[in-house]
Design a protein around this nucleic acid. Structure first.
Lengths: 151, 151
DNA sequence: ATTGAAACTGACATATG
DNA sequence: CATATGTCAGTTTCAAT
């Protein structure tokens, strides 16, 4: 699917501040407020916009420990099974199925090492998980596009 | 203190849908709308919440290929060297030094496979990089706290 | 474009530790 | 005494006619 230039500018404006009013965005792109809303509604229906979220600084919230968990799942596990299993954990910031040895990579933020270990044990104990391999983040180097961490 | 607990629930609610009304969130966490707003304002002042953004389908914006690159660096490479080397790539969404075999994990968004390969080759050619291992994302399952895609 | 409804924001009073 | 919450009014924003 392709977005026209107007849509891209609207999306860009929302990416910078998703709580701007439609009138405000309209003034920037040269449309009336209702026209902007119609486009946003259409973008949501088409799936180009999947929702609105908040950018957080994990450290400021006390999530000082970050890590990646590679999941190796039982052979008949579907991506949807994994998603349902993981979405209950507030510590899970992102998760994707991937190519390679592991079946999925899960990004986890925890308050400290003990907390991280607890989450790791619970995830490893999910029925569809065969084994896990985890690495801890030492230093966040680059964090763009709101990929969640210190500014 | 369980004040922090309340903040976490509010952030979690906003992470799922940043356009929910304060009254709606308050009903969920057991506060009035103004009380929720005050906490959100305080979280923004403290830097815990850095902004509100839109979740977009990367494919709709032309970023159809996502992957992780594990970097194995020369022994005397500092994290700062890696950061300086990677920040020039707009395709790099995040990068962190990690424990384990690899020295760093880099998250990359590209327009297509050819683009991804080109970025991979350029990164692998950086003077401080000894070798790389990369995995491609098949399906994004969970994407919270703004850990998303380029906007 | 206009109108009715809903949400946000700031002020004030109160309860709690 | 300080902090946080709830209620209320004024204003803005939204959504549908």
């Amino acid at each position: 699917m392709r977005l026209n230039q107007l849509d891209e500018r609207i999306v860009h404006a929302l990416a910078e501040d998703a709580r701007r009013s439609y009138a405000d965005i309209g003034a920037e792109v040269g449309l009336s407020a209702p026209a902007v809303k119609r486009r946003v509604d259409r973008l949501r229906e088409q799936g180009a916009i999947t929702g609105f979220t908040v950018r957080v600084d994990p450290a400021a919230l006390g999530w000082e420990t970050e890590g990646f968990i590679e999941m190796y799942c039982r052979s008949n596990t579907s991506p949807e099974d994994i998603r349902r299993g993981l979405e209950r954990y507030p510590e899970v910031a992102s998760a994707s199925t991937v190519t390679g040895d592991a079946d999925a990579i899960v990004q986890v933020f925890a308050s400290d090492m003990r907390h991280f270990e607890r989450v790791l044990e619970r995830i490893a104990g999910e029925p569809f998980v065969e084994r896990t391999r985890s690495v801890l983040v030492l230093s966040p180097l680059v964090r763009r596009y709101g990929s969640g961490s210190p500014a």
